[in-house]
Every structure is written in structure tokens, then in C-alpha cells.
Design a protein around this nucleic acid. Structure first.
Lengths: 181, 181
DNA sequence: AGGCGTTATGTACAAACGTACATTCTTTGT
DNA sequence: ACAAAGAATGTACGTTTGTACATAACGCCT
């Protein structure tokens, strides 16, 4: 904590560091001081850039949701044909965007928080709406709803399960949902 | 907070009240004092029955996992034939055990906590193992893994989605996973 | 160059927290 | 009936927390 006057986009950096701290310690144990130390800024810097802890959490989780939805849309926008879309979904579940432990963990924290905070609830609602819209470019509405839920469940179970789930199993599950009866 | 000496199974009651407090305020905002007030017992009663807050959380989430796994097993044990098992699964997702907002919420909190605490991680592992074993009495191993994930995703999305998902959609999704290719 | 608005810093403080513990009451076993 | 063991209570204390705020430094515009 030396002299570090003039740190442009410190606010942006604080938001990213806050997500790291939340991923490591959980919302329950995330404090102004922990984030300040992790970002190597004085405590007062946090109260300057954010109205309070709630404001910091809101900014952090908004970034998480936006980034994830961006990646989701990009992956599906780059897919062509039904097979391409299916493989894109498999790649998302198995890849780092939805599959990485850190993101799954942060998602839990967001869900838990959003259940009690309307402003964060709006964040999750927007996120889900964007995901569904991206899927609906390739699949019919009914399939989209089911696929959306399957993606959620597979991501969680892949990250949490004791024995890792193979990509083949993921692909098989996606196929069962997508393949018309 | 009058005279209430001699309160057998107060410990059990405190665990249940703790789950209520966690569901309402989240783990992050659950304190000894909040639980004590909700249960109408003095503060000291909590430090007497539990070694600390962590111990209380562990007891509460263990009960949640055990109760849910019990209900899950019972529903599937009472099902006969493949159609019966399928309908049991649909009923579980749409019913109160997995579908109720409170339980979904508590599950998030548990997942978020279990990611960082080995003792609670063991609780979720056992829960998942019991669920999978109950499903495997009716379905082949591959289908069981996929169905398990689908149940998770559908439960979450049903509780969180803006527009409620119909039971027919749930049944359709289960059928797509279960029906052999 | 110089002033002004913005950004950065360190400290201070009240409130809330987890936990320990001495004391009091109740049940249980003999 | 009485003693021992267990359960229940209230208080007290040290720590951590969120947040406010006075002060200082910096970038930018004229």
C-alpha cells in the first residue's frame, strides 16, 4: 500500500476483485476490508467508489451476469445449423464460462442474494431472458425452456459431482432434450 | 421471553428456527441473536446447545439434506413401473419438496457454504448419492445422471422463472430424458 | 500557470457481533 | 429426600464491522 495516487478505472478493478473475494470467502464473509486488502487500496477507497457494501455487491454481480450472458450469446450466435447449436450448448456446459467452479460458485451466491433483493432479482431475470432469447434463435420455445433448465442442472452437477461427468454424457443429455420426439 | 425453564428438544427447535432465519435473511445475515429472538430463547441458549455459529449451520443444513433425501427416497420407493417412476419425478419437481421457494433458497445457501466447508461438502455429497441411488432403482445409470441434473435445473427454474413453468412442460422434459433413444 | 472539480487517503466511532462464563434452576437417579 | 448432573439464563467483553468525514493530492481546462 504505497503511493498510488491516480489510478484510473480503479472502480472497475474493485468490482473484479470483489468477485474474486466473494468466490473465495462467500458473500457472508466478504467485507470492505477484505476487498480493500485484496485490491491493495485503502479502506476509504471503497466507501468513495460505492455507496455501501450492497452497492458493491450489486455492481459485481451485474458484471458477472452481463459477462456470462455476453459469452452465452456469442457462442450461440456463432453456431450454424441445428447440429452447430447443439455442439455450442455442449461446449458452453463443459467449457469455462458455465463449467468453471468459480462461476458456478458465484452464481449460487447471486441466486441466494437475488432471492431477497429486488435490484439483484432484476439482474438474474435479465440474464435468464437473454439466455432464453439466444437459445430461441435455434430451438422452438418448448425445447428452449427445457434446454435452459438442463443447462443449469448439468453445469451445477458437473461442478459439484464427486465423479466428473463426461462430455459424452453432456452431449447425450442435450441430444435427448433437443431431438424431436 | 418469559420463564421457560425445562424445554426438552429445544435443540431440535433451534435447528428448525435457524433454517427459517436462514431462508429469510440468508446465511450472511444470520446471527446468534436473530435465531435467539425468532425462537424466543435467550442468547446464551445458543452458545449452550451449539459450539458456535458454524456448528449451528452444520446442524441445520444436515437436517435440510436428510429431510429432503428422505422425501425423495419415499416418493420413488412408492412408485411402481417405469411410468410410475416418471410421474413420481414430475411430482417431486412440481411438488413442495423440491419446488417450494423456501427449499430452493436454502439449497442455494447450502451449496454456497458447502463449496468452502468440507463438513458441509460431505452433507451435499451424501444427499446427491442418496438421490442418485433412489433414481437408479428405476432407471439405468446414464439416464439417472442426466435425470438428476434435469431435476436440479427444473426445480431452480420453476422457482425462479418470471413466467411459471407448467407441469406439462416438466413432464415433457422428463419424458425426453427418460425415453430411450 | 493556476484554480477548480474530482479522486484518494487515513482515521475515527458507534453499532453489532461471537463467545465465554458464573449463576440459577430443573430433572434424574438412588 | 437429597445430591449430582445437566439445562437454562443473563451479562460482560474484546473484536470486527460499516460508514462518515476531514484532509490531501491529482488531472484538466482555460
Amino acid at each position: 500500500m504505497s503511493v498510488r495516487r491516480h489510478d484510473p478505472n480503479r472502480r472497475r478493478r474493485l468490482i473484479e476483485v470483489a468477485l474474486d473475494v466473494i468466490a473465495e470467502h462467500g458473500v457472508a464473509a466478504t467485507t470492505h476490508r477484505k476487498v480493500a486488502e485484496a485490491a491493495d487500496v485503502p479502506l476509504g477507497s471503497l466507501t468513495y467508489h460505492f455507496k455501501g457494501l450492497d452497492d458493491l455487491f450489486a455492481a459485481a454481480f451485474t458484471k458477472l451476469a452481463d459477462d456470462t450472458a455476453d459469452g452465452f450469446e456469442a457462442a450461440l450466435a456463432g453456431a450454424h445449423g441445428r447440429d452447430g447449436a447443439r455442439e455450442a450448448v455442449v461446449g458452453l456446459i463443459a467449457g469455462e464460462l458455465l463449467g468453471e467452479r468459480r462461476n458456478i460458485l458465484l452464481t449460487y451466491e447471486l441466486y441466494a442474494l437475488a432471492a431477497r433483493r429486488p435490484d439483484l432479482r432484476r439482474v438474474t431475470d435479465t440474464w435468464m431472458a437473454r439466455s432464453r432469447a439466444a437459445l430461441e434463435r435455434h430451438f422452438d420455445p418448448a425445447t428452449t425452456v427445457m434446454l435452459d433448465a438442463l443447462i443449469e442442472g448439468l453445469s451445477i452437477h458437473r461442478a459439484l459431482a464427486l465423479e466428473p461427468m463426461s462430455v459424452e454424457t453432456v452431449r447425450d443429455a442435450v441430444n435427448r432434450i433437443v431431438t424431436p420426439q
